[in-house]
Design a protein around this nucleic acid. Structure first.
Lengths: 345, 345
DNA sequence: CTGAAAGCGCTTACAG
DNA sequence: CTGAAAGCGCTTACAG
């Protein structure tokens, strides 16, 4: 039957309906599982199902989505997937979204506000049902628009407390406080705090936790030991900052890092300056990798639960979506603050 | 103007056409940049553009795609995004695809053939223009269907040599040969080869390179030193294999690892058994991380050019797409084998 | 139980 | 230079 060959890959509902002498309405119902509720005879249902299989019919979701208004596709935006933290989030979100029946569209903003805006716009034009994003401070155009349009989105990791939106973050202040407190309990008195992107609320809160621990211990924070780094040039900036502290002979005996990215830099700095690495016992950081723990086994760290974070992210997103679908008049935003698992050494 | 508020977020071409008293054909042309070629007066074009901006019109790409037959969305499938190698590929593909005007849909197969098939099916139903995937041996149903349907796809990293399809891989045999040869040049004679997923062509070729180097040096490969590991349980399996070799007192003085994942396991094994880690000078592996190089600075490794790989992947995909669009009758498949940068210590 | 018809929001021949 | 009309492939009231 050459006709079959010619039609390959472009079978439509109409084709099935024609071959079977029924209307495409019925075919649509049966294929979307509404056969029973629409009281289609078992026999007709079977004929349709079999013909669909025989012709290798696959529904065109574009057409379906144009009708139903939802694509069952979610957008995920991150600053950089090469950061193991975001890679881990992406992993869990992707797997769990699939499990809940959603496909994932992704985009890397490279910490660029315009890029982030472009991604949001593109995803919205492509009609994703909702967007999950770790956002920048500057790029507020499209975020404001999402709020204005009442478009569903969830922030993660980086967020705006003043914004009434869903978000899932970690206990930044508390965790940072605990890490710092632990270093203090070891007798360290001149503890430095290194942070990337200090303008982000997330990072600022980590700074506040650090400060609270110092204050509580009656220690005076030395402003010269609070270092803000530009993440896009962090390797150079970090080394420069370390060198400045070192050369200026500013007393320092402990380090809290807002990101694990700094740890290896620090270790290499210590090494190249003949300083004792101390197995990292004077270091604390967020989200250390296994390799890092091997390198500085006595470092303390806070494990960010990326698995829980990813799952909650999707759950909040999907719940929000079904709330709206059920016609809820008032959306209640979810603010989730996950605790970190502390590994204090 | 309350009417404006009510319509928020659902402005269509028709709305613009109505307000301006023109047909939606013209609006469509102007907004898709065909204004000049269709000889629409400058004045009309300006009015349309301004009204579109004023109403904050955003085109519904679903509707457009249903017409044009392309979504400008690409699918990317990987076994696991938590493997830094695939994370790096994903990063470059995502950024470069955006640059070339495409959005990325992703999915993690978790090395599960059925999952991979499901992802391919889902992406095809959602009408991605093409799929880029690192595939499994077992899941051939949907791959065969893509070939049958002449659906555009590109394999990467893992591929089937017998399949006439696009692919971009690295020089597996040659790179493995060079790494092994280098260990031999250090005087090592009993070199083990550890591989995950030996059934994959990619991995088998690395084994062949290892073997060639041994043969060339007149060394007899010891079958007991060629270890195949199941990737999903690699931590336990690896330790068990190391222990077996160690306990059986099988002579071994060098290690080639098909994946960097094994290196830290090996180092920890050496350490816990009181063996000399030798700074890793008896180890060679694929795609070492910076942390790993710090831990075993004298290890040799091959750097997989994930940047080039990701870019080529997208280029091959997009070129294939435009070839088809231009109505090329014969598709010429691209087989790209990228060299690795060797770091021999 | 079943079908004809309208519609989702675009694009694109086709006809002036 | 411009518009009416058909169509992309589905879903879903509406009417028998």
């Amino acid at each position: 039957m050459p006709a079959l060959l010619i039609m390959k890959g472009k079978i439509t509902l109409q084709d099935i309906a024609d071959k079977l002498g029924v209307s495409k309405t019925v075919v649509s119902w049966v294929l979307s599982g509404q056969g029973d509720s629409k009281h289609i005879s078992k026999e007709t249902q079977t004929r349709i199902l079999e013909k669909a299989r025989e012709l290798n019919f696959t529904p065109n979701y574009l057409a379906r989505s144009l009708n139903t208004g939802n694509t069952h596709t979610l957008g995920l935006i991150f600053p950089s997937i090469s950061d193991p933290f975001y890679a881990s989030i992406a992993r869990h979100v992707s797997i769990y979204a699939n499990k809940r029946g959603y496909t994932l569209m992704v985009g890397s903003s490279r910490s660029d506000g315009n890029m982030e805006d472009a991604l949001i716009r593109m995803m919205r034009n492509k009609k994703v049902d909702g967007i999950m994003l770790a956002t920048m401070k500057r790029s507020r155009v499209e975020i404001d628009r999402m709020i204005e349009d009442n478009f569903p989105f969830v922030l993660y990791d980086r967020y705006y407390p003043e914004l009434d939106s869903n978000y899932v973050i970690i206990q930044n202040e508390e965790t940072s406080y605990q890490l710092t407190k632990h270093l203090i309990s070891k007798g360290l008195k001149n503890i430095a705090f290194f942070m990337a992107n200090a303008h982000l609320t997330t990072i600022h809160q980590r700074y506040l936790g650090y400060k609270r621990a110092l204050n509580e211990a009656g220690l005076e924070p030395n402003p010269e030991l609070v270092v803000s780094i530009n993440i896009s040039t962090y390797m150079d900036d970090f080394a420069a900052a370390m060198k400045y502290i070192h050369d200026s002979k500013i007393p320092v005996d402990g380090y809290v890092f807002s990101s694990a990215l700094f740890v290896l830099e620090a270790v290499e700095f210590f090494k190249s300056h003949g300083m004792d690495i101390q197995n990292g016992r004077h270091i604390a950081c967020f989200h250390a990798s296994r390799e890092l723990k091997y390198i500085v086994p006595e470092m303390s760290s806070a494990k960010i639960p990326t698995d829980k974070m990813g799952i909650h992210l999707v759950d909040i997103m999907v719940d929000d979506l079904s709330l709206r679908k059920s016609g809820a008049d008032v959306i209640h935003y979810v603010h989730e603050e996950l605790p970190c698992e502390l590994e204090l050494n």
